[in-house]
């Protein structure tokens, strides 16, 4: 199983294609979603790197967590993340995903995103400018090309740890178990 995953991760042609075609799920959480339209449209034009918006999690590769996550949103994010198809990457966006940011003492927002889903790249800032976002995407591309963006694999291998963390904040766990 793990050999198979490693082989998939180190396939040079596949990694090249994955690197140049990052489909971002158009799911805006928190306040950073407002930075995504300028990144995609004519001023900064992320499409020249092959970064496009996709409407459903089944088709997307990259999940952008754009800012703070309330526990209620975290539920939806986990569900969305598990619906995405396997080589999938998460970008944590803004200081809220790193250490809670300005919501550090809020009863309702999570403080560390990487406790709940595996994050491949953090972009810091509150909020990061579109240049910062594009820089984060390029760093992600480099990691993919080197076969280091293995967050999805890490999630599969350490599912129990992640599930325990998720169930700690989500009291009433009624989500289906996906087989991926």
């Amino acid at each position: 199983m793990n050999d198979d995953l490693d082989r998939q991760n180190n396939n040079i042609i596949a990694n090249w294609a994955r690197k140049h075609s990052l489909w971002v799920l158009a799911y805006g959480t928190g306040c950073g979603a407002i930075e995504v339209p300028p990144t995609m449209t004519s001023r900064y034009d992320a499409e020249r790197f092959g970064i496009t918006g996709m409407a459903t999690p089944r088709q997307a590769d990259v999940l952008l967590i754009t800012g703070y996550l309330a526990i209620k949103t975290l539920k939806r994010v986990i569900r969305t993340y598990e619906q995405m198809q396997a080589p999938k990457y998460v970008i944590g966006f803004g200081s809220c995903t790193i250490n809670g940011g300005m919501y550090w003492d809020s009863y309702n927002t999570i403080k560390r995103l990487d406790d709940y889903i595996p994050v491949d790249i953090f972009i810091n800032g509150c909020m990061p400018r579109p240049e910062g976002v594009i820089d984060g995407f390029i760093k992600l591309q480099e990691r993919i090309a080197r076969g280091q963006a293995k967050g999805w694999q890490h999630y599969q291998e350490n599912l129990d740890w992640y599930r325990a963390n998720q169930k700690k904040v989500i009291k009433n766990w009624t989500m289906p178990d996906y087989n991926w």
């Binding site: 526990i71 209620k72 539920k75 790193i98 250490n99 809670g100 550090w104 003492d105 809020s106 009863y107 309702n108 999570i110 403080k111 560390r112 406790d115 700690k168 904040v169 989500i170 009291k171 009433n172």
Partner: peptide, 28 residues
């Protein structure tokens, strides 16, 4: 807005937000 909230209602002044956060979440 809240889902599955079992604690004290959070906007009451006797609800200690920081203690709740320290108990529920882990700071970096």
């Amino acid at each position: 807005i809240l889902e599955d909230w079992s604690d004290l209602p959070p906007m009451r002044r006797d609800f200690d937000t920081r203690a709740f956060v320290a108990e529920t979440f882990e700071w970096r």
